[in-house]
Amino acid sequence: MCVEPLQMNMVSDTAVRVIFGTVISMETHKNIRSFCRELEKHPQKGIQEWVPSYTAVTIFYDPFLLSFDSLEAYIMNVCDSIEHHNLPDSMQVTIPVCYEEAFGPDLNQVAVHNQLTPEEVIELHTEPEYLIHMMGFLPGFPYLGGMNEKIAAPRLDAPRMKVPAGSVGIAGSQTGVYPLESPGGWNIIGRTPKKLFLPQETDPVLLEAGMRIKFMPVTTDEFLEMEEKEASC
């Protein structure tokens, strides 16, 4: 089975965007995952890296080593060799989250906005399995799909100057985790002790596009215990 990319366009003179769809869908996501797997299997001199997004894969290349025509032919070949039934299940990662007020200062606000109790927000937030559509914005930041609209909440009017690493937030109908301290306007509903970004490691980022995530509620004591363990390994 082969996959037809809809079209290609130029992000720059060294990056081409292979488009697989125009809206967020499971089908497009699968095509993108399959395409990236094939890229991995068929290394090509002159291709430096690629970045999957919601609807496209952007390939960074060196025109000195690989002409655009050759790149185009290579992309077509890769698309032809995609076999969906070979796509393995992606990994599920559990992310423990402490939703106590000290870690989730905006939980109450999100609850009030949606006429729910904080407990109901936690339940709705931990219920689904989220899909990582893509990574970006910050090192190790996952763009997640699958949040229940019932807990959607607008961004803060004034972004915070500092959101601590590990903070779990909601902005519009998106949820995400801050891998490192950063300014930000998301409603912070909790924090994970899990380190999502460790720059000193050879593989510094725990998550990747295609993985599935479950949030698991933990108490403050459990949070502190896990944090200590993370710090010592």
Partner: peptide, 10 residues
Amino acid sequence: RTGRQKKGIP
């Protein structure tokens, strides 16, 4: 750095 953009590293 090259090769880590897919993980969000500029």
